[in-house]
Amino acid sequence: MLIRFYLNNQLKEINSDPDKRVVDLLRENLGLTGTKEGCGEGECGACSILVDGVSKLSCLMLAAQLDGHNIITIEGLADGEKLHPVQAAFVVGGAVQCGFCSPGMVIAALDLLQRNPHPQRSEIRQGLSGNLCRCTGYQKIVDAVEAAALEMGDKL
């Protein structure tokens, strides 16, 4: 079926099986391998994307559900070489180790900061609670989101 949607602010028209999982469509058909898969059933958050600005799990979405929506993946955040403030805070703050959870974490952080630009530390932990990380122990990720919130102020 023909699916039309905005992908990282560009109109996309693609032919896809309607029941293909969005994570597969992104990775296999569109070459956007920044969206990761860690469990396939919504437990790890590695496949998170923004759908109309809201974080959702691309392993639990079908390609047909993209039609008419505005999708942002991890690849759509940086402006050329210039990282998004959340991404920059992750790098500077040491929030990245193996990095396989990082794209999903950044998406979760963005979702949180859009709802709550000045979160408490506990609210950050709450906002990241759908994303499992096996390397960092979360602390530096929380630090990074805190720093990004400070950096961005109300700009988001």
Binding site: G34, L83, Q87, V92, V96
Partner: peptide
């Protein structure tokens, strides 16, 4: 900061 950071956070 780690050299592998930017590539990893940008996907």
């Amino acid at each position: 900061p780690r050299a592998d950071g930017p590539g990893k956070v940008c996907g």
